[in-house]
Simulated scan of single mutants.
Amino acid sequence: MIAATKPMFDWMPSNQDELAAQLHQRVAEASFPCVGAKAALAKGTLEVLAARDLTSAWDDLRIHDRLLHFAAAYRAKPELYRSLAVVFDTPLALSEAEFERLLWTRVQSLSDKDVWRGQHYDDSVSADPDDPHFSLSFGGEAFFVVGLHPNASRPARRFPNPVMVFNLHDQFEILRAQGKYERMREKIMVRDEAIAGSRNPMLQRHGEASEARQYSGRAVDADWRCPFHYKGAE
């Protein structure tokens, strides 16, 4: 396992601060529905990593490196409301279907690097995207991804740049154990309905349906199949 030390790829593009400030401002908006993201922002635990291009693997090693250290830091000090948001500089004109395809291309590349670097899959979740207990795994920790982009149909998923927000699955389990998960989930759904006019039909509880259907934010039908395939040992 990777220790919670200084990341190997410890440099930032010139627009790092600008993109981080823009995302923080978006989360801070009164209408933004995700109270978990707001809590992370208030605690200073909403990390932002700027990257070049969602269509390119250029930054994938740097992103994966940050995921490994994010996971290791969480194991060293488990605490609620920690998120890692990767904000891409381009492209800015994507349809929902294009964003979904590119998001899963990046996910597949990052997962392949996890295998290449000898990381085991978190055994508390499934690596099969058709399984109701599916989550991604990086550095031995399960992650749930939330995608944002300019042309998302759900207002809550809109942001001027493409974004992939990595949330630790274990945090949801802690909230369940504390009896807080259902209240928090309902609060988010009510706030989302207030700005969208309807509840998000893609939102399901872990274990009821595969969370893969929620990642991109696009409403998918029953025939949709996730393109992700874990290439390590099951």
Rank of each mutant, 00 (worst) to 15 (best):
M8E: 15
F9Q: 12
M12F: 14
S14I: 13
N15G: 00
N15A: 11
E18G: 03
A20G: 06
A21S: 14
L23S: 04
H24A: 12
H24D: 11
Q25L: 02
R26K: 12
V27E: 03
A30R: 08
P33V: 04
P33I: 02
K38D: 01
K38F: 02
A39V: 01
A42L: 07
K43T: 02
G44Y: 09
G44T: 09
L46V: 05
V48S: 07
A50H: 09
L54E: 10
L54T: 10
T55G: 04
S56Y: 00
S56M: 05
D59N: 07
R62L: 05
I63D: 09
H64V: 10
H64T: 11
R66D: 08
L68V: 07
H69N: 10
F70Y: 15
F70C: 11
A73W: 09
R75L: 12
P78I: 04
P78H: 05
P78R: 03
Y81S: 03
Y81R: 00
Y81Q: 00
R82A: 04
S83E: 10
S83C: 11
V86A: 01
F88Y: 15
D89F: 02
A93L: 07
A93C: 03
E96K: 01
A97Q: 13
E100T: 09
E100L: 06
L102M: 10
L102V: 03
L103W: 02
T105I: 03
V107T: 08
Q108I: 10
S109D: 12
K113L: 15
D114V: 02
D114F: 00
V115W: 05
V115M: 06
G118N: 05
Q119R: 10
H120D: 13
A127W: 15
D131V: 06
D131A: 06
F134G: 07
F134E: 08
S137M: 10
F138P: 04
G139E: 10
E141A: 14
E141L: 15
A142H: 07
V145K: 02
L148D: 00
L148P: 05
H149R: 01
N151R: 13
S153Y: 08
P155Y: 00
P155Q: 05
F159A: 10
F159T: 02
N161Y: 13
V163I: 14
V163P: 07
V163M: 07
F166D: 06
F166S: 04
H169M: 08
Q178A: 11
G179V: 11
Y181F: 15
E182M: 13
R183K: 15
A194L: 01
A194Q: 03
I195D: 08
G197E: 06
R199T: 00
P201T: 07
R205P: 02
E208F: 10
S210F: 06
S210M: 06
E211K: 07
A212Y: 09
R213W: 01
Q214A: 05
A219S: 10
V220S: 00
D221H: 13
A222G: 01
A222V: 12
D223H: 13
D223N: 13
W224G: 01
W224C: 01
W224K: 01
Y230I: 08
Y230V: 07
K231F: 04
K231C: 14
